[in-house]
Design a protein around this nucleic acid. Structure first.
Lengths: 246, 246
DNA sequence: CTCATTTTTATGTATAGACATAATAAAGTT
DNA sequence: AACTTTATTATGTCTATACATAAAAATGAG
C-alpha cells in the first residue's frame, strides 16, 4: 500500500515505477519533513526538481505543495522557493454542529425547551456588542438543550430583527433559534470566543448546578453580508469538554 | 474591483470580458449560494456548464469547486454532481501559537518561569492517559507564563522520555518545554480538549486567583509516529478568552 | 561603494486534452 | 416486478504548455 521512495533518484530499477499522484507527493514530502530529513527552515527543492524526482509533472507537484502550504507545513514565495516553516503554527480545525446533532451522535436523547422569548429594543451593552444602530429591535430568546434528561447547554440568544425580520414571528417552541437561523440565514461569518465563568443564580437553576460552579462559556457572533445577525452565549455545565484534533 | 456577472449567459455585450480566475469563480458561486439564489440542497450546474458560463476552462472551475468543497460549502459526488450542503456544518479554524508569541503579539512583555521539574516513573493515571508501558520514565515539568508581570498560563506537563530521550537533559529554565518540543519534535498529531474547572490551591497560588475561581482548562495530548510524546494541562485565569473565526 | 535597472528564476495561474472512476440511469433478462 | 448488465455522465486527476508575477540576483551607472 505504502509507496516509499528510498533514494532521491528517479526510480530504482527493481521497484515498480508506480505513478506518483499529488497525494503521494504530498505524503512523501511531509514524511521527509517529519523525519527531520528536511528540518525547519530548510529550503525545499524546486517544483521542477521534485517533479523529476517523483516522476510526475510540475502541476502535480504544485498541487501537493499548495496543499502543504494551506496546511501550514511549508511556506512558499515566488522566486524564494518553498521552505519548511520554522514555527509549525498548526491550525486546529473542528466542526460546530447543531446541538441536536451533537447530542444525538453521542447516542443520547435530545430535548429542547424554550424558556423565554421577547421582542424589545436592544439594550445599550448589546448595541455596542453587535454594532447596532441605536434601539434596533431585537428578539431575546433563552432556551435549554438537554441530553437524556440532563441539562446540556443553556442558550441565551439575541437576534437582530433588522437583519432577519422573519425571526420576529418564528416559532421557537419546538425547534431552537440556532437550528432555525441555520436554515434561514446559511453561510454566515462568525467569531467564537471560549472561556470559563461562574454559574450565577439563573444559570445554576437551569443547568441544575450549584451557584459558583465553573461553567464553560462559548460566545458566538454571527454576521451576514456585513451586518451582525445574532449574538449568543452558550453555557455548558462542569464536565463538558470540547474536543478538537489536529 | 468587484466582478459581478448579472445574467447566466456567457457575457453581455457591454461589460468587459475580464477573464474569470478560480478565485472569481469561487467568489461568484459562493455569492450565489449566500444570496439564496442557490439554496441548501440545490444541485449546481456541472463543471462544463459553469466553465462556459464564466468563460473559463473546466480546470479553473474544478479548482474553485474543489476549494468550496474543502471549505464545507458544497458537497460533490461523481456523476451525482455538486450540491449546496444542507446543514452548513462550518468548521472553525484557529491557530495554537506558542504562548510566547501569543503574549508578544498582544504587545505584552512575556516572561517564563520554571516552577518544578523531576524525572520519575509514570504514575498509574498517566499510564492510562498516555497509553504507556508500565512505569515508563517521564519528565514532569510545571511552569508559569506571564504577560506584563501578570500570570497568563500555568502549564503542567508530562513528557514521555521513551519517545523523546533528549528531553531528560533539556534545560527548561529559560525556554519552556513546549517551545523546546516544538523544535525537537515538530509536526505531530494532537488532540485538544477544552473545558472549565475550579482553581485548586496550587493553581490559585500560581495564577494569583482565589480558590474556587473558574479556570479555563486546555488539555493537549500529542503523538509522533504513533507514540504519545507529551500530555499537558494548561490553566488560564478567569477572563482569558480563546478566539476562533470562521 | 550605493543606488537604480535589468535579468533570471520559482512559483502562481490558466488551458486543452486525456483517461480514470464512481454512481446513476437505461436497457435487457429472467 | 425484480434483477443483472451496460451505457452514460460528472467529477477526479494528470499532463504538457504557456504566460504572469514577485522577488532575488546580477548588472550597470553615478
Amino acid at each position: 500500500m505504502n509507496k516509499i521512495i528510498m533514494s532521491s533518484h528517479k526510480t530504482t530499477s527493481t521497484a515498480a515505477p508506480e505513478k506518483f499522484g499529488f497525494r503521494d507527493v504530498k505524503r512523501e514530502v511531509f514524511e521527509r519533513i517529519r523525519n527531520n530529513k528536511w528540518g525547519p527552515g530548510t529550503q525545499l527543492p524546486g517544483e521542477v526538481e521534485l517533479a523529476s524526482t517523483f516522476g510526475c509533472s510540475r502541476a502535480t507537484v504544485n498541487r501537493a505543495m499548495q496543499e502543504l502550504s494551506d496546511d501550514g507545513i511549508i511556506e512558499r514565495r515566488r522566486k524564494g522557493g518553498s521552505h519548511v516553516k520554522l514555527a509549525p503554527i498548526r491550525q486546529v480545525k473542528f466542526e460546530i454542529p447543531l446541538v441536536r446533532v451533537e447530542v444525538e451522535s453521542r447516542g443520547s436523547e435530545y430535548r429542547y425547551q424554550l424558556i423565554s422569548s421577547e421582542v424589545m429594543a436592544a439594550p445599550h451593552w448589546l448595541q455596542v456588542r453587535m454594532d447596532l444602530q441605536v434601539a434596533s429591535p431585537v428578539r431575546h430568546v433563552r432556551c435549554l438543550h438537554s441530553a437524556d434528561g440532563a441539562p446540556y447547554q443553556y442558550e441565551d440568544r439575541w437576534i437582530n430583527l433588522f437583519a432577519v425580520p422573519r425571526a420576529e414571528d418564528a416559532n421557537f417552541s419546538k425547534i431552537g433559534p440556532n437550528e432555525w437561523l441555520v436554515n434561514e440565514v446559511p453561510y454566515t461569518n462568525a467569531e467564537v470566543r471560549f472561556g470559563a465563568t461562574n454559574a450565577d443564580h439563573t444559570i445554576s437553576q437551569h443547568l441544575k448546578t450549584i451557584d459558583g460552579d465553573p461553567i464553560f462559556l462559548a460566545e458566538r457572533s454571527t454576521w451576514h453580508a456585513g451586518v451582525q445577525v445574532t449574538f449568543v452565549r452558550l453555557y455548558f455545565p462542569r464536565g463538558y469538554q470540547m474536543i478538537a484534533k489536529y
